[in-house]
Amino acid sequence: MTYPHELHPSDEQLSAYQDDELDAAAHRRLGAHLAACPRCTARIADFAALSADFALLPPESPGVDLAGVIEGRLTAAPGRPRTTPRAPGWYGLLPLGIGAAASLALGIALGVALPTGGAALHRPVALTVFDPFPPGSLCAGRDACYARGALSSGVMR
């Protein structure tokens, strides 16, 4: 018997088979089961039809070149290294601006002091407080909180 604890492979196995995400041995074993089982073959066909439905969805686009919009918003706001304080609003953001300026100065100083360093050394020290997690990852129950734990345990590649 190929699946001793159950007569048929689980949805999970069938779904992973459909995605070609089973290891070679499991894929072969399931393929052999499918060849003899109309019931599981029908389930796989449903999964395949669902994928085909996704392929029918029309491509979406914002319809504008967001790079230009974002460039404008970046120019209007401070906050990244090597962005010269051209925008008039920059000075209005004190004391944040003071911190940024101090960081920038320190970063430049470090860059000068360590000319053989990589690009990372030229970054203002203040920016190293950025954690590697993307912003906006507030917790709201288990499904929103798992990102931090999993990432810090090395899931990220």
């Binding site: 970054r123 950025f130 954690d131 590697p132 993307p134 912003p135 906006g136 990220m156």
Partner: peptide, 25 residues
Amino acid sequence: KAWNALPGWRPEARFTTWLFQIARN
């Protein structure tokens, strides 16, 4: 957010994966 967080991005993380993390959050 991606622009501001890029100093924390590491090339070991695929950029699109990282970008979609930000978008889904």
